[in-house]
């Protein structure tokens, strides 16, 4: 099996995984990072979104080996010592989760969205989260949380 090296949540990781191993499977099954959820496994739902070299991608639609040498950030890599990331805090404050299954992907997509778009408004949040589905349909509070999280991220957090 080919050897794979990459960085996950700022830690160097090596793994022997099959070529057909998806990044989502590497994270969950080989590294035990089960915060990345697999919802549809068909790149529709966005529950598996992680950051690869700072860009939001669907980890169920990328082979682990395609991430060779990349920096991967998962939901587990957001919080500091005892402090939530501002976007996580905003999701909690605004009750932006019901069952919570979509939440890791929503937060990762939202972190990238907020960082890339300093002037986010409601329409931009809706368009930016087109690839993330909440089957509880709790979108109103998610939008509120993303706007609040983006505001508190400005100037004080770097992801």
């Amino acid at each position: 099996m080919p050897q794979l090296s990459l960085s996950v949540n700022a830690r160097p990781v090596s793994a022997d995984v099959e070529p057909r191993c998806l990044l989502s499977n590497l994270l969950r099954e080989h590294l035990g990072l089960t915060g990345t959820h697999i919802g549809c496994d068909t790149s529709q739902c966005g529950a598996c979104v992680v950051l690869v070299d700072g860009k939001a991608i669907k980890s169920c639609t990328m082979f682990a080996h395609q991430a060779e040498g990349c920096e991967v950030t998962t939901i587990e890599g957001l919080a500091g010592e005892g402090t939530l990331h501002p976007m996580q805090e905003a999701f909690r404050d605004h009750h932006a989760l019901q069952c919570g299954f979509c939440t890791p992907g929503m937060i990762m997509a939202s972190v990238a969205l907020a960082r890339d778009n300093p002037a986010l408004d409601e329409a931009a949040v809706c368009k930016g989260l087109e690839g993330n589905l909440c089957r509880c349909t709790g979108y109103q509070n998610i939008i509120r949380a993303v706007l609040a999280g983006a505001k508190s991220m400005r100037g004080k957090h770097d992801v």
Binding site: S43, G46, V49, K55, A56, I57, K58, T61, M62, A109, A112, L113, G128, E130, G131, N132
Partner: peptide, 9 residues
């Protein structure tokens, strides 16, 4: 095209 995550790949 698609959504932001798809456009990144």
């Amino acid at each position: 095209i698609g959504d932001p995550a798809v456009r990144n790949r």
